[in-house]
Design a protein around this nucleic acid. Structure first.
Lengths: 200, 200
DNA sequence: GGCCCTATTGACCAAGCGGTCAATAAATAC
DNA sequence: GTATTTATTGACCGCTTGGTCAATAGGGCC
C-alpha cells in the first residue's frame, strides 16, 4: 500500500546504508537491487526510483567507501612531531592500523578496485582518491628532504611506497590472519623506514 | 552432431585456456560457462561435462593463475650475489618487474583474492600460495641476518613487507598508470631497502 | 559385427536479475 | 476542495544464468 512517505534525502541515505551493509556481507556480487531493498525493508522498485539505475547506486556506494578509507587526517600529536622521519613513521603507523581496523571495508574497496579494470568511471574515481591520498603523504615527505630527493628516492616514489606498506598488510592478512601478526609487520615497516633521509 | 571427440586431458586444458582468456578480458563476472564454451567453440554442456560444476572450473583457473604469479624462481645471477642485502634488492626488483609485466593476470588474482572473503576454498588456496611465496623471501632474509633478527624486524615481518612492496606497485598502477612511474617507484623501493641489516 | 563406454550436442528448465509500468495514497499547490 | 505532483507498491517482462537430460555418434573390445 503506497502511503507512508519519507523525505528524499533521508530515503537515499537509508538505501545507501542498506547497500553498504549488503556489500560488506555479501560482496559486490551479492549487491542486488532486491537485496538492498529487502535490507531497507522497501520494495525493489523504490530503490530504482531513487537511484535510477543500479550502477548509480554502486557509484554512490563507492564514494562512501572511498571517503571512509582513502582520506588522510593528520592529528595534532603527529603534526607536532619535530623530526620529519619520525613524523612519517607515526603517520604510516596510524594509517596501517586504521586500515586494519575495518578489513571488510577495505576488501569492499578492493572489489571496486578490480572492477575498475572494466569500468572507466570506477577506475577514475578510485584513481583520483588514491592520487589524493598519495599526495598527502608526499607533502609530509617533501619536508623530510627539504624539497630535494632523499637518497635515490623521489618523494612521489616514496609516497607510493608508503601506500604499498599501508595497504599491503591488511590485504595479506585478509587471507591468513593467524600467520601474519600485525605487530611483527608494523615493526618491520618501522625498521625499513628507520634510515630514510640519510645520504646513500 | 556429436562425433569429433578429443582426449579428456586435452579438452580440459583447452577449456581452461579459454576460461583464462575470458577471465582476463571480462573479469570473473564475465566468466560464464557459456562464454567459455563460445571461446573454445564448444557447447556449454560440454564444459559442464568436463568440469562438473562452474566453481570447479573457477578453482582450476585459480590454480593456474596462482602458479603464474605467486611462484618465486631464484635465477643464478641473483643466487650468486654475495652480499645478502643486494641479493634481496635484486630479487625484489625482479619480482616487481615480473608482476608488472602481466597486470591483467595480477588483477585476475586480485579478483579471486577479494572473493576469498566469501569463499573458504579460495581463501585457503591463495593463502597457501601467498604463504609459500612469503616463505621463499624469508629464506633469503634469514641468511641476511644470520638467523637472528635484524634491527627491530623479524624475517617473517620483512618478508611480508617485501611482498607488500612488490604487489603494491602494479596494484596502484592499474588505476593511474600515467601518474606513477615504475622506475620512480622501483628506485624508492631500493632506497628503502638500502640500509637493511644495520644495527639500529 | 555387435556392444558398451565416453564424448558431444541441443533442447529444456527454474531461478534470479535489472528494469518498466499502471495503480494508488499522501503531500502540496492553487 | 479540487488538481497536481511526489513516493510507493506489486505485477509483470525479457534476458541471462547454471544445470539437467535424452539423443546420438565414434572408438575400443571381444
Amino acid at each position: 500500500m503506497p502511503g507512508q512517505r519519507e523525505n528524499q534525502a533521508t530515503r537515499q541515505e537509508q538505501i545507501l546504508e542498506a547497500a553498504y551493509e549488503v556489500a560488506l556481507r555479501r560482496g559486490i556480487d551479492g549487491l542486488t537491487v532486491r537485496a538492498v531493498a529487502a535490507r531497507a525493508r522497501l520494495s525493489h522498485s523504490l530503490v530504482l526510483f531513487h537511484f535510477k539505475r543500479k550502477d548509480q547506486l554502486g557509484l554512490a556506494l563507492l564514494d562512501r567507501v572511498l571517503a571512509g578509507t582513502l582520506s588522510l587526517t593528520l592529528p595534532n600529536e603527529i603534526r607536532t612531531i619535530r623530526k620529519p622521519r619520525e613524523r612519517l613513521q607515526a603517520l604510516v603507523s596510524q594509517e596501517l592500523q586504521r586500515m586494519s581496523e575495518e578489513p571488510r571495508r577495505l576488501r569492499l574497496l578492493l572489489e571496486f578496485w578490480t572492477r575498475g579494470g572494466h569500468n572507466a568511471v570506477i577506475r577514475q574515481k578510485i584513481g583520483a582518491g588514491l592520487s589524493e591520498y598519495r599526495t598527502a603523504f608526499q607533502d609530509v615527505l617533501s619536508e623530510m628532504s627539504n624539497g630535494k630527493t632523499s637518497g635515490r628516492s623521489s618523494s612521489a616514489g616514496l609516497a607510493a611506497v608508503a601506500v604499498s606498506l599501508i595497504i599491503g598488510y591488511p590485504v595479506q592478512a585478509m587471507l591468513d590472519p593467524e600467520r601474519l601478526g600485525e605487530g611483527e609487520y608494523l615493526a618491520s615497516v618501522q625498521g625499513v623506514l628507520e634510515h630514510l633521509g640519510l645520504a646513500a
